[in-house]
Design a binder for these strands. Sequence first.
DNA 1: TGGGAAAGTGAACGAACGTTCATTTAGAGG
DNA 2: CCTCTAAATGAACGTTCGTTCACTTTCCCA
Lengths: 197, 197
Amino acid sequence: MKPAPTRKESAPQQRFLDGAADLFARNGYHATSIRDIARALGVTPGAIYAHFPSKAGILLAVYEAGVARITEAVDHVMQSGETPWIALEKACHRHLDEVLADNGYARVVVRVVPEDVAEVSADLARLRADYESRFRHLVDALDLAPGTNRTLLRFTLLGALNWSQVWYRPGLTAPGDIAGEIVRNLKDGVAVKGNEA
Amino acid sequence: MKPAPTRKESAPQQRFLDGAADLFARNGYHATSIRDIARALGVTPGAIYAHFPSKAGILLAVYEAGVARITEAVDHVMQSGETPWIALEKACHRHLDEVLADNGYARVVVRVVPEDVAEVSADLARLRADYESRFRHLVDALDLAPGTNRTLLRFTLLGALNWSQVWYRPGLTAPGDIAGEIVRNLKDGVAVKGNEA
DNA sequence: TGGGAAAGTGAACGAACGTTCATTTAGAGG
DNA sequence: CCTCTAAATGAACGTTCGTTCACTTTCCCA
Protein backbone atom coordinates (compact mmCIF):
# COMPACT_ATOMS: atom_id res chain seq x y z
CA MET A 1 0.00 0.00 0.00
CA LYS A 2 0.97 3.61 -0.32
CA PRO A 3 2.27 5.64 2.63
CA ALA A 4 -1.21 7.14 2.69
CA PRO A 5 -1.31 10.96 2.65
CA THR A 6 -3.79 11.02 5.48
CA ARG A 7 -2.97 13.22 8.47
CA LYS A 8 -4.23 16.44 6.88
CA GLU A 9 -4.61 15.98 3.15
CA SER A 10 -1.11 16.36 1.70
CA ALA A 11 2.46 16.70 2.85
CA PRO A 12 3.74 19.98 4.31
CA GLN A 13 6.61 19.35 1.95
CA GLN A 14 4.59 21.36 -0.57
CA ARG A 15 4.78 24.41 1.65
CA PHE A 16 8.54 24.09 1.84
CA LEU A 17 8.80 23.82 -1.93
CA ASP A 18 6.65 26.90 -2.44
CA GLY A 19 8.81 28.95 -0.12
CA ALA A 20 12.05 27.76 -1.65
CA ALA A 21 10.77 28.41 -5.18
CA ASP A 22 9.83 31.95 -4.24
CA LEU A 23 13.23 32.74 -2.75
CA PHE A 24 15.20 31.04 -5.51
CA ALA A 25 13.17 33.01 -8.07
CA ARG A 26 13.62 36.34 -6.32
CA ASN A 27 17.23 36.12 -5.18
CA GLY A 28 18.78 33.31 -7.16
CA TYR A 29 20.06 29.96 -5.94
CA HIS A 30 23.44 30.90 -4.48
CA ALA A 31 22.17 34.04 -2.78
CA THR A 32 19.50 32.03 -0.98
CA SER A 33 20.56 30.11 2.12
CA ILE A 34 18.83 27.23 3.83
CA ARG A 35 18.37 29.55 6.79
CA ASP A 36 16.64 32.10 4.54
CA ILE A 37 14.15 29.47 3.43
CA ALA A 38 13.58 28.27 6.98
CA ARG A 39 13.06 31.81 8.24
CA ALA A 40 10.54 32.58 5.50
CA LEU A 41 8.54 29.55 6.61
CA GLY A 42 8.82 30.19 10.33
CA VAL A 43 10.81 27.03 10.88
CA THR A 44 14.33 26.03 11.93
CA PRO A 45 16.87 24.92 9.32
CA GLY A 46 16.90 21.34 10.55
CA ALA A 47 13.22 20.86 9.68
CA ILE A 48 13.99 21.16 5.99
CA TYR A 49 16.27 18.14 6.06
CA ALA A 50 13.40 15.93 7.16
CA HIS A 51 11.96 16.40 3.66
CA PHE A 52 14.89 17.12 1.34
CA PRO A 53 18.33 15.57 1.12
CA SER A 54 20.26 18.77 0.38
CA LYS A 55 19.99 22.31 -0.91
CA ALA A 56 20.64 21.11 -4.46
CA GLY A 57 17.91 18.53 -3.93
CA ILE A 58 15.44 21.30 -3.12
CA LEU A 59 16.39 23.10 -6.31
CA LEU A 60 15.90 19.93 -8.31
CA ALA A 61 12.44 19.43 -6.83
CA VAL A 62 11.52 23.04 -7.60
CA TYR A 63 12.85 22.66 -11.12
CA GLU A 64 10.85 19.50 -11.69
CA ALA A 65 7.68 21.18 -10.50
CA GLY A 66 8.42 24.24 -12.63
CA VAL A 67 9.01 22.26 -15.80
CA ALA A 68 5.91 20.20 -15.07
CA ARG A 69 3.83 23.36 -14.84
CA ILE A 70 5.13 24.78 -18.11
CA THR A 71 4.95 21.59 -20.13
CA GLU A 72 1.51 20.81 -18.81
CA ALA A 73 0.22 24.19 -19.86
CA VAL A 74 1.89 24.02 -23.26
CA ASP A 75 0.93 20.40 -23.94
CA HIS A 76 -2.68 21.23 -23.27
CA VAL A 77 -2.53 23.71 -26.12
CA MET A 78 -0.66 21.43 -28.52
CA GLN A 79 -3.28 18.69 -28.60
CA SER A 80 -6.11 21.10 -29.33
CA GLY A 81 -5.67 20.84 -33.10
CA GLU A 82 -5.19 24.53 -33.86
CA THR A 83 -3.33 25.81 -36.89
CA PRO A 84 0.45 25.93 -36.31
CA TRP A 85 0.62 29.69 -35.82
CA ILE A 86 -2.36 29.77 -33.49
CA ALA A 87 -0.91 26.86 -31.52
CA LEU A 88 2.41 28.65 -31.18
CA GLU A 89 0.74 31.83 -30.04
CA LYS A 90 -1.34 30.06 -27.45
CA ALA A 91 1.66 28.12 -26.20
CA CYS A 92 3.65 31.34 -25.83
CA HIS A 93 0.71 32.84 -23.99
CA ARG A 94 0.71 30.00 -21.50
CA HIS A 95 4.48 29.97 -21.23
CA LEU A 96 4.54 33.65 -20.38
CA ASP A 97 1.71 33.26 -17.88
CA GLU A 98 3.84 30.74 -16.03
CA VAL A 99 7.09 32.68 -16.30
CA LEU A 100 5.45 35.85 -14.96
CA ALA A 101 3.30 34.10 -12.36
CA ASP A 102 3.45 35.00 -8.68
CA ASN A 103 4.73 31.59 -7.71
CA GLY A 104 8.42 31.11 -8.38
CA TYR A 105 8.50 27.69 -10.02
CA ALA A 106 8.75 28.65 -13.69
CA ARG A 107 10.82 31.70 -12.84
CA VAL A 108 13.43 29.45 -11.27
CA VAL A 109 13.59 27.32 -14.41
CA VAL A 110 14.29 30.40 -16.50
CA ARG A 111 16.63 32.06 -14.06
CA VAL A 112 18.83 29.25 -12.79
CA VAL A 113 20.89 27.79 -15.61
CA PRO A 114 21.87 24.13 -15.17
CA GLU A 115 25.61 24.81 -15.02
CA ASP A 116 25.09 27.00 -11.96
CA VAL A 117 24.68 24.01 -9.63
CA ALA A 118 27.13 21.26 -10.47
CA GLU A 119 25.59 18.59 -8.23
CA VAL A 120 22.38 18.49 -10.27
CA SER A 121 23.34 20.20 -13.51
CA ALA A 122 22.78 17.09 -15.60
CA ASP A 123 19.26 16.70 -14.23
CA LEU A 124 18.45 20.36 -14.72
CA ALA A 125 19.72 20.26 -18.30
CA ARG A 126 17.56 17.24 -19.05
CA LEU A 127 14.49 18.95 -17.63
CA ARG A 128 15.19 22.08 -19.65
CA ALA A 129 15.62 20.10 -22.84
CA ASP A 130 12.34 18.38 -22.06
CA TYR A 131 10.40 21.59 -22.06
CA GLU A 132 12.25 23.26 -24.90
CA SER A 133 11.50 20.29 -27.14
CA ARG A 134 7.86 21.41 -27.12
CA PHE A 135 8.89 24.62 -28.81
CA ARG A 136 10.99 22.75 -31.31
CA HIS A 137 7.92 20.84 -32.41
CA LEU A 138 5.79 23.96 -32.50
CA VAL A 139 8.32 25.77 -34.68
CA ASP A 140 8.86 22.77 -36.92
CA ALA A 141 5.17 22.75 -37.75
CA LEU A 142 5.21 26.32 -39.04
CA ASP A 143 5.09 27.23 -42.70
CA LEU A 144 8.08 29.53 -43.05
CA ALA A 145 9.79 31.56 -45.72
CA PRO A 146 12.45 29.42 -47.42
CA GLY A 147 15.86 29.51 -45.80
CA THR A 148 14.57 30.45 -42.35
CA ASN A 149 16.72 29.00 -39.56
CA ARG A 150 14.19 27.29 -37.33
CA THR A 151 16.63 26.73 -34.50
CA LEU A 152 17.48 30.39 -34.35
CA LEU A 153 13.81 31.28 -34.57
CA ARG A 154 13.11 29.07 -31.58
CA PHE A 155 15.87 30.69 -29.54
CA THR A 156 14.74 34.14 -30.61
CA LEU A 157 11.28 33.36 -29.37
CA LEU A 158 12.37 31.81 -26.08
CA GLY A 159 14.81 34.63 -25.48
CA ALA A 160 12.23 37.31 -26.12
CA LEU A 161 9.71 35.57 -23.87
CA ASN A 162 12.07 34.73 -21.03
CA TRP A 163 13.75 38.14 -21.00
CA SER A 164 10.40 39.54 -19.89
CA GLN A 165 11.30 38.33 -16.44
CA VAL A 166 13.91 41.10 -16.33
CA TRP A 167 11.70 44.01 -17.25
CA TYR A 168 8.09 43.01 -16.67
CA ARG A 169 6.22 44.60 -13.82
CA PRO A 170 2.62 43.72 -12.89
CA GLY A 171 0.09 46.28 -14.02
CA LEU A 172 1.61 46.68 -17.47
CA THR A 173 0.26 44.92 -20.53
CA ALA A 174 -1.11 41.47 -19.74
CA PRO A 175 1.26 38.53 -20.37
CA GLY A 176 -1.07 37.12 -22.99
CA ASP A 177 -1.04 40.33 -25.01
CA ILE A 178 2.75 40.48 -24.81
CA ALA A 179 3.11 36.91 -26.05
CA GLY A 180 0.64 37.56 -28.84
CA GLU A 181 2.45 40.65 -30.05
CA ILE A 182 5.87 38.99 -29.93
CA VAL A 183 4.63 36.11 -32.05
CA ARG A 184 2.82 38.41 -34.46
CA ASN A 185 5.89 40.61 -34.86
CA LEU A 186 8.03 37.61 -35.69
CA LYS A 187 5.45 36.20 -38.05
CA ASP A 188 4.65 39.27 -40.09
CA GLY A 189 7.51 41.65 -39.33
CA VAL A 190 7.34 45.16 -37.96
CA ALA A 191 8.55 47.14 -40.97
CA VAL A 192 6.04 49.25 -42.91
CA LYS A 193 4.50 47.07 -45.58
CA GLY A 194 4.08 47.71 -49.26
CA ASN A 195 7.33 48.16 -51.14
CA GLU A 196 8.92 44.74 -50.90
CA ALA A 197 9.31 41.66 -53.11
CA MET B 1 49.90 66.41 -13.26
CA LYS B 2 48.47 62.95 -13.47
CA PRO B 3 49.55 60.13 -11.14
CA ALA B 4 51.69 58.98 -14.06
CA PRO B 5 51.18 55.35 -15.04
CA THR B 6 54.91 54.77 -15.28
CA ARG B 7 56.35 51.72 -13.56
CA LYS B 8 55.44 49.26 -16.29
CA GLU B 9 52.89 50.83 -18.54
CA SER B 10 49.57 50.33 -16.77
CA ALA B 11 48.25 49.13 -13.46
CA PRO B 12 48.11 45.41 -12.62
CA GLN B 13 44.62 46.32 -11.52
CA GLN B 14 43.59 45.53 -15.08
CA ARG B 15 44.73 41.96 -14.69
CA PHE B 16 42.61 41.60 -11.56
CA LEU B 17 39.58 43.00 -13.35
CA ASP B 18 40.02 40.62 -16.28
CA GLY B 19 40.19 37.62 -13.97
CA ALA B 20 37.19 38.73 -11.93
CA ALA B 21 35.15 39.42 -15.07
CA ASP B 22 35.91 35.96 -16.39
CA LEU B 23 34.83 34.22 -13.19
CA PHE B 24 31.75 36.36 -12.66
CA ALA B 25 30.71 35.64 -16.25
CA ARG B 26 31.27 31.91 -15.99
CA ASN B 27 29.98 31.17 -12.49
CA GLY B 28 27.93 34.19 -11.51
CA TYR B 29 28.60 36.73 -8.79
CA HIS B 30 27.48 34.88 -5.68
CA ALA B 31 29.12 31.60 -6.71
CA THR B 32 32.48 33.34 -7.14
CA SER B 33 34.52 33.99 -4.02
CA ILE B 34 37.36 36.43 -3.51
CA ARG B 35 39.55 33.39 -2.97
CA ASP B 36 38.49 31.99 -6.33
CA ILE B 37 39.56 35.18 -8.03
CA ALA B 38 42.85 35.31 -6.14
CA ARG B 39 43.61 31.68 -6.96
CA ALA B 40 42.91 32.20 -10.66
CA LEU B 41 45.45 35.02 -10.61
CA GLY B 42 48.07 33.22 -8.54
CA VAL B 43 47.76 35.71 -5.70
CA THR B 44 46.57 35.77 -2.09
CA PRO B 45 43.15 37.20 -1.25
CA GLY B 46 44.66 40.17 0.55
CA ALA B 47 46.30 41.45 -2.61
CA ILE B 48 42.94 42.19 -4.16
CA TYR B 49 42.07 44.65 -1.41
CA ALA B 50 45.01 46.83 -2.34
CA HIS B 51 43.10 47.69 -5.53
CA PHE B 52 39.41 47.29 -4.76
CA PRO B 53 37.37 48.26 -1.73
CA SER B 54 35.11 45.20 -1.66
CA LYS B 55 33.72 42.33 -3.68
CA ALA B 56 30.77 44.47 -4.76
CA GLY B 57 33.27 47.14 -5.77
CA ILE B 58 34.96 44.68 -8.10
CA LEU B 59 31.63 43.85 -9.69
CA LEU B 60 30.88 47.53 -10.16
CA ALA B 61 34.22 48.08 -11.88
CA VAL B 62 33.63 45.08 -14.15
CA TYR B 63 30.14 46.35 -14.93
CA GLU B 64 31.44 49.80 -15.79
CA ALA B 65 34.04 48.35 -18.12
CA GLY B 66 31.47 46.04 -19.69
CA VAL B 67 28.96 48.80 -20.33
CA ALA B 68 31.76 51.00 -21.68
CA ARG B 69 32.72 48.31 -24.17
CA ILE B 70 29.17 47.80 -25.41
CA THR B 71 28.24 51.46 -25.62
CA GLU B 72 31.49 52.31 -27.32
CA ALA B 73 30.94 49.69 -29.99
CA VAL B 74 27.31 50.67 -30.49
CA ASP B 75 27.95 54.41 -30.47
CA HIS B 76 30.56 53.99 -33.15
CA VAL B 77 27.85 52.56 -35.38
CA MET B 78 25.23 55.15 -34.51
CA GLN B 79 27.19 58.15 -35.71
CA SER B 80 28.01 56.58 -39.08
CA GLY B 81 24.86 57.95 -40.72
CA GLU B 82 23.39 54.67 -41.93
CA THR B 83 19.70 54.15 -42.55
CA PRO B 84 17.81 53.25 -39.36
CA TRP B 85 17.49 49.55 -40.17
CA ILE B 86 21.12 49.20 -41.21
CA ALA B 87 22.20 51.07 -38.11
CA LEU B 88 20.14 48.77 -35.90
CA GLU B 89 21.52 45.68 -37.57
CA LYS B 90 25.10 46.83 -37.19
CA ALA B 91 24.52 47.79 -33.57
CA CYS B 92 23.08 44.36 -32.84
CA HIS B 93 26.05 42.81 -34.56
CA ARG B 94 28.44 44.71 -32.31
CA HIS B 95 26.35 44.05 -29.25
CA LEU B 96 26.37 40.32 -29.89
CA ASP B 97 30.10 40.34 -30.57
CA GLU B 98 30.63 41.76 -27.11
CA VAL B 99 28.11 39.53 -25.36
CA LEU B 100 29.66 36.41 -26.89
CA ALA B 101 33.26 37.55 -26.57
CA ASP B 102 35.87 35.52 -24.74
CA ASN B 103 36.38 38.18 -22.12
CA GLY B 104 33.68 38.27 -19.50
CA TYR B 105 32.89 41.97 -19.27
CA ALA B 106 29.76 42.20 -21.39
CA ARG B 107 28.66 38.76 -20.29
CA VAL B 108 28.62 39.96 -16.70
CA VAL B 109 26.43 42.91 -17.63
CA VAL B 110 23.90 40.58 -19.22
CA ARG B 111 24.09 37.87 -16.59
CA VAL B 112 24.15 39.77 -13.31
CA VAL B 113 20.94 41.69 -12.81
CA PRO B 114 21.24 44.83 -10.66
CA GLU B 115 18.96 43.54 -7.89
CA ASP B 116 21.31 40.62 -7.30
CA VAL B 117 23.81 42.76 -5.40
CA ALA B 118 22.08 45.20 -3.11
CA GLU B 119 25.18 47.23 -2.22
CA VAL B 120 25.61 48.48 -5.78
CA SER B 121 22.24 47.74 -7.37
CA ALA B 122 21.47 51.40 -7.98
CA ASP B 123 24.76 51.89 -9.82
CA LEU B 124 24.29 48.75 -11.87
CA ALA B 125 20.75 49.78 -12.81
CA ARG B 126 21.98 53.18 -13.93
CA LEU B 127 24.70 51.62 -16.07
CA ARG B 128 22.21 49.22 -17.63
CA ALA B 129 19.79 52.02 -18.42
CA ASP B 130 22.67 53.90 -19.97
CA TYR B 131 23.38 51.22 -22.48
CA GLU B 132 19.78 50.25 -23.15
CA SER B 133 18.99 53.85 -24.02
CA ARG B 134 21.04 53.37 -27.19
CA PHE B 135 18.61 50.74 -28.33
CA ARG B 136 15.69 52.96 -27.46
CA HIS B 137 17.03 55.58 -29.85
CA LEU B 138 17.78 53.03 -32.53
CA VAL B 139 14.25 51.61 -32.35
CA ASP B 140 12.67 55.06 -32.21
CA ALA B 141 14.32 55.93 -35.53
CA LEU B 142 12.70 52.98 -37.33
CA ASP B 143 9.81 53.34 -39.74
CA LEU B 144 7.34 50.82 -38.33
CA ALA B 145 3.90 49.52 -39.12
CA PRO B 146 1.29 51.62 -37.32
CA GLY B 147 0.45 50.48 -33.82
CA THR B 148 3.74 48.72 -33.23
CA ASN B 149 4.79 48.83 -29.58
CA ARG B 150 8.35 50.13 -29.75
CA THR B 151 9.13 49.37 -26.13
CA LEU B 152 8.14 45.76 -26.55
CA LEU B 153 10.08 45.57 -29.79
CA ARG B 154 13.18 46.79 -27.98
CA PHE B 155 12.80 44.21 -25.23
CA THR B 156 12.11 41.50 -27.80
CA LEU B 157 15.34 42.39 -29.55
CA LEU B 158 17.45 42.60 -26.41
CA GLY B 159 15.95 39.39 -25.07
CA ALA B 160 16.65 37.50 -28.28
CA LEU B 161 20.21 38.83 -28.42
CA ASN B 162 21.07 38.33 -24.76
CA TRP B 163 19.52 34.88 -24.53
CA SER B 164 22.21 33.73 -26.97
CA GLN B 165 24.51 33.63 -23.98
CA VAL B 166 22.56 30.60 -22.76
CA TRP B 167 22.74 28.51 -25.92
CA TYR B 168 25.57 29.84 -28.07
CA ARG B 169 28.68 27.71 -28.42
CA PRO B 170 31.74 28.81 -30.42
CA GLY B 171 32.00 27.14 -33.79
CA LEU B 172 28.35 27.66 -34.65
CA THR B 173 27.11 30.49 -36.81
CA ALA B 174 29.11 33.69 -36.36
CA PRO B 175 27.63 36.26 -33.97
CA GLY B 176 27.27 38.77 -36.76
CA ASP B 177 25.17 36.41 -38.86
CA ILE B 178 22.99 35.62 -35.87
CA ALA B 179 22.38 39.29 -35.14
CA GLY B 180 21.64 39.95 -38.81
CA GLU B 181 19.10 37.17 -39.05
CA ILE B 182 17.35 38.13 -35.82
CA VAL B 183 16.91 41.70 -37.04
CA ARG B 184 15.80 40.60 -40.49
CA ASN B 185 13.26 38.19 -39.02
CA LEU B 186 11.78 40.92 -36.88
CA LYS B 187 11.78 43.40 -39.73
CA ASP B 188 10.20 41.29 -42.46
CA GLY B 189 8.67 38.37 -40.58
CA VAL B 190 9.26 34.67 -41.06
CA ALA B 191 5.88 33.60 -42.42
CA VAL B 192 5.58 32.67 -46.09
CA LYS B 193 4.80 35.79 -48.05
CA GLY B 194 2.12 36.42 -50.55
CA ASN B 195 -1.39 36.06 -49.18
CA GLU B 196 -1.69 38.92 -46.74
CA ALA B 197 -3.22 42.40 -46.69
C1' DT C 1 73.36 54.17 -3.23
C1' DG C 2 69.65 54.74 -0.65
C1' DG C 3 64.69 56.27 0.24
C1' DG C 4 59.92 55.41 -0.70
C1' DA C 5 55.84 54.03 -2.63
C1' DA C 6 53.40 50.34 -4.70
C1' DA C 7 52.41 45.30 -4.58
C1' DG C 8 51.82 41.29 -2.29
C1' DT C 9 52.07 38.04 1.85
C1' DG C 10 50.11 35.24 5.39
C1' DA C 11 47.69 34.84 9.30
C1' DA C 12 43.81 35.96 11.59
C1' DC C 13 38.81 37.90 12.73
C1' DG C 14 33.85 37.11 13.21
C1' DA C 15 30.06 35.76 10.69
C1' DA C 16 27.46 32.80 7.83
C1' DC C 17 27.34 28.65 5.34
C1' DG C 18 25.34 23.46 4.55
C1' DT C 19 24.52 19.73 7.28
C1' DT C 20 23.83 16.35 11.28
C1' DC C 21 21.54 14.46 15.23
C1' DA C 22 19.76 13.42 19.84
C1' DT C 23 15.76 15.09 21.68
C1' DT C 24 11.09 16.99 22.13
C1' DT C 25 6.36 17.85 20.37
C1' DA C 26 1.90 16.56 18.69
C1' DG C 27 -1.74 14.06 16.71
C1' DA C 28 -3.99 9.50 14.97
C1' DG C 29 -5.15 4.47 15.66
C1' DG C 30 -5.48 0.18 18.13
C1' DC D 1 -4.78 5.37 27.58
C1' DC D 2 -0.90 4.38 25.47
C1' DT D 3 1.92 3.79 21.66
C1' DC D 4 3.86 4.78 17.28
C1' DT D 5 5.37 7.95 13.86
C1' DA D 6 5.98 12.05 11.34
C1' DA D 7 7.44 16.81 12.23
C1' DA D 8 10.20 19.97 14.17
C1' DT D 9 13.60 21.70 17.51
C1' DG D 10 18.03 23.65 18.87
C1' DA D 11 22.56 23.13 19.46
C1' DA D 12 26.53 21.91 17.42
C1' DC D 13 30.11 20.32 13.62
C1' DG D 14 33.57 21.75 10.28
C1' DT D 15 34.15 24.73 6.39
C1' DT D 16 34.19 28.74 3.79
C1' DC D 17 33.03 33.42 3.42
C1' DG D 18 34.48 38.74 3.05
C1' DT D 19 37.65 41.51 5.10
C1' DT D 20 41.68 43.48 7.85
C1' DC D 21 46.40 44.39 8.85
C1' DA D 22 51.26 44.37 10.28
C1' DC D 23 54.88 43.04 7.63
C1' DT D 24 57.94 41.85 3.70
C1' DT D 25 59.30 42.19 -1.06
C1' DT D 26 60.25 44.72 -5.35
C1' DC D 27 62.03 48.17 -8.08
C1' DC D 28 61.80 53.06 -9.85
C1' DC D 29 63.94 57.56 -9.19
C1' DA D 30 66.61 61.12 -7.09
